[in-house]
Design a protein around this nucleic acid. Sequence first.
DNA 1: CCCGGCGGAGAACGGTCGTTCTCTGCCGAT
DNA 2: ATCGGCAGAGAACGACCGTTCTCCGCCGGG
Lengths: 188, 188
Amino acid sequence: MIDEKTAREAVIEAADELFYAHGVQAVGMDAVRTAAGVSLKRIYSLFASKDELIVAVLHHRTTVWDSGLASASERATSARERILTIFDFLDAWFREPDFRGCAFINTHGELGASSTAVADAVREQKRSFQEYVARLVSDAGAPATLAPQLAILAEGAQTTAAIAGTPDAAHQARAAAETLLDVATARG
Amino acid sequence: MIDEKTAREAVIEAADELFYAHGVQAVGMDAVRTAAGVSLKRIYSLFASKDELIVAVLHHRTTVWDSGLASASERATSARERILTIFDFLDAWFREPDFRGCAFINTHGELGASSTAVADAVREQKRSFQEYVARLVSDAGAPATLAPQLAILAEGAQTTAAIAGTPDAAHQARAAAETLLDVATARG
DNA sequence: CCCGGCGGAGAACGGTCGTTCTCTGCCGAT
DNA sequence: ATCGGCAGAGAACGACCGTTCTCCGCCGGG
């Protein structure tokens, strides 16, 4: 048998892909089993329940998102550029053919009311993103009130792009962010 | 028996409340029956399937949202004020104890991948909102590019408030909208 | 007063889901 | 070579859901 860590990752990655593509409740554990190539018995020895698997998937997505954001901002030379890089990162994501909105928002809408563990995992990811933006805003010398405004733009772009089915929202949000940055950094 | 229109409305309103509170898939038709006080047989004579009921609920929510937005903007005296009223409307909504995000976004995340009828109804509502904002932006004499930026702020505020569980996003988005409006109407 | 049909209540049906169990074959140890 | 135990495959189980069906009580017309 493959070692535990490998099996865990295979299950999480297969579940992530299926959950994101079809919604969590539309995917049965059988489908996860088939996609991951790991027996149900083993899946249930790695995760106590589907709910626990969902939370693990969300945590996995958080790390993927964080590292994607970090690597996208590597080329940026200033804090201002790093902020705007967020929206370029979104633009590239929106153009992926299987883009279907933010998995955290989707999962929260689907299960946030019934599972507090899911709601907590989603809230934690959003909080961490807000913190990331706040750090960049502080680096750019802009007032702290700018950070939640930029975060709201990023969130809105994700849902707008998901529902409209076009990536336009990324550059629209980017333009708004530029304006807000200009105004916030103009004064002294 | 009660007349058809009344029964239809009772079913739609009961389903709307339950779907919004718990998510669509978490609510069985039995629960709708009990809440609406309309027999299953009658429900299925009014709606061919649960999917059709979901779409009817979304259409109902669209009219409720539109009229709420319209009545909130009645007191505003200028186009600029009418735009900012959107965010005051959101603020009041976010403070309602049973606020759980935008039903359209939630339902799209849950069922948008599997039901094109649902995805279409959601997209149509967002398109109509974009149009409403575009009309106000035009009335305010601002460039058309401002409209999607404001719409993105409104969308982002809704998901942020839903996940964070606080109404802060409304006034943060309002402040950003004010800045964008100032910049967009300063020239000329 | 009797009868036929209509509507409501909820049981029934077929399917699916999350979870567990059984069976079978494989592996290392003796 | 034989045995014990572990892992995989998938059947089994109980619950539930969307949808349909059955039965019962009520109603108006003769």
